[in-house]
Amino acid sequence: MVTEPEAGPVTGPGTAPPRPDPGDELGVILSQRREGRQEIVNVDAATIQLVIFVIGDQQFALPGAQVAEILPLAPIFPVPGCPPAVEGVMDVRGNIRSVLRLGDLLGAAHHPLARHAAILLGRVGDQESGLRVDRVVDVTPVILESLIPPPDQLPPPLAGLVTGVFQRPEGPVLVLDMERIFQAWQDGRL
């Protein structure tokens, strides 16, 4: 009689799979995969789509609903008489849009311009503007419950703009709100 290969117990809800022996590398990997899969299939948790990006050494995020496009660096034309944070204007398929250095608004120093740099085309209502960032890291859903309120000790430029914080292996991510950024800019607070 041929015996069935060990398929492992069919685990139902609430039944934890056996912990692998630490020396069983394959078992550890399979366990990690199982845990990762459990996170993915947890579809009932409310999530928010976030565009995660880096300015200098700090990670930030913006709601995906407020980012119309992620654009590669393109020719930007300076406009005289603007605050230094305004990099200029660019053409987006026939529409002329402003481009601001987001780091200048947030008090975060940009890395030197590199090929990874990108422009987030922010959209709030009928207003659009490009925001230059150093690198886009990910576009991913984040479980709302994993967001914690912003700390009280955030420096002034960030204090009114950060709506939450969550952790990634690379460090904390400050979640921003595009509407607050646009409004603060137009009010002259940035």
């Binding site: 406009v79 204007v89 002329i96």
Partner: peptide
């Protein structure tokens, strides 16, 4: 095209 609103708001 008109000036983008974020530029128009702060142009000197």
């Amino acid at each position: 095209q008109p000036l983008p609103p974020l530029i128009a708001a702060r142009l000197r």
